[in-house]
């Protein structure tokens, strides 16, 4: 409530009403740059190839009938449910492991950083991993995962857990400062072990950071192409984006089929965004700013 009041007061300070109205209109018009590509995707996905003429109307006018044939065909061609399942599996497992494992790592390192040099060195060692782009590690990792027999979904999950570690470790150790030491000391006096203390006291108290980590990890995993592309290429398994890449040749010049497939690939995350918009935006901002 207080925030609202403040903003109201702001109005008089920041600018006149007319200026705000003009800006408002400009911003609404600007939304077209977001909607136009999405609109085009939807329209083309519903059309038949015969309705695609060579002028602008051919691509952007409404289809004669709204039927789902293209989608059914796209699902069959790209093995949609299988790819969706893989994407969900990779993202879900990665997010869960990241939250459990990285919060523990953040606690272990964060709490002892001031006491022993080895924890401090470990912190900077892992966080500096943020500077290593995947492209740099790609080739050795392909060899390594193949040698270890994990050139598959398991390997991709392990790599994600390692790649998101620097970022997540930084977030968790940063957040640990908000959790008072007294909480742990109390549970220690009650005879709880460090392990118990973490899961019973610290982990639940890290909840806001879990949300941030979950959003950031999930978004990067869901949309990632490069890791599954190079690691799982021999397994015949696809993720949603990977399926678009691998079936590109099968779409041929049937853009309607291709766009139906693109739309299907975008749909899950769009629905998720509409439901959890606030958490997603908060998560992204928290991750970047902290």
């Amino acid at each position: 409530m207080e925030k609202k009041k403040k903003i109201k007061k702001h109005q008089g300070v920041v600018g006149s009403k007319t200026a705000n109205r003009i800006i408002n209109i400009l911003l609404v018009i600007g939304c077209l740059t977001i909607f136009l590509p999405l609109y085009m995707t939807i329209i083309i996905a519903f059309k038949k190839p015969s309705e695609m003429t060579n002028d602008v109307a051919g691509a952007l006018a409404f289809p004669k009938t709204w039927n789902l044939d293209n989608f059914a065909e796209a699902m069959r061609v790209t093995d949609f449910w299988h790819s969706l399942g893989n994407s969900l599996l990779l993202t879900g497992v990665t997010v869960v492991i990241c939250i459990l494992f990285h919060s523990l790592a953040g606690y272990v390192i964060g709490r002892k950083m001031g006491r022993h040099g080895i924890f401090k060195i470990s912190y900077y060692y892992i966080v500096s991993g943020m500077f290593v782009p995947f492209a740099v590690l790609m080739m050795p990792l392909v060899k390594q995962t193949a040698q270890m027999g994990i050139a598959n979904r398991l390997g991709v999950i392990i790599l994600y857990v390692v790649f998101f570690m620097p970022m997540n470790l930084m977030l968790y150790t940063g957040y640990l400062k908000n959790i008072p030491l007294a909480l742990e000391e109390a549970s220690c006096i009650d005879g709880a072990t460090a392990w118990q203390t973490f899961w019973q006291i610290i982990f639940p108290n890290m909840k806001p950071m879990h949300a941030t980590v979950a959003v950031l990890t999930a978004m990067s995993t869901w949309n990632d192409v490069m890791t599954p592309l190079v690691i799982m290429s021999g397994t015949g398994q696809n993720t949603l984006p990977l399926a678009q890449l691998n079936f590109q040749t099968q779409f041929g010049t049937n853009y309607n089929l291709a766009f139906a497939s693109y739309l299907l690939a975008l749909l899950p995350i769009l629905v998720f965004y509409i439901i959890c918009q606030k958490q997603i935006i908060n998560g992204v901002v928290n991750g970047a700013v902290k």
């Binding site: 977001i34 999405l38 083309i44 918009q277």
Partner: peptide, 20 residues
Amino acid sequence: GIYFVPNILGGLVVGYIFSF
């Protein structure tokens, strides 16, 4: 909320759409 939408979409599929 609307202006944030492009960020959540995967770069590969967005690329294909813009390619057309």
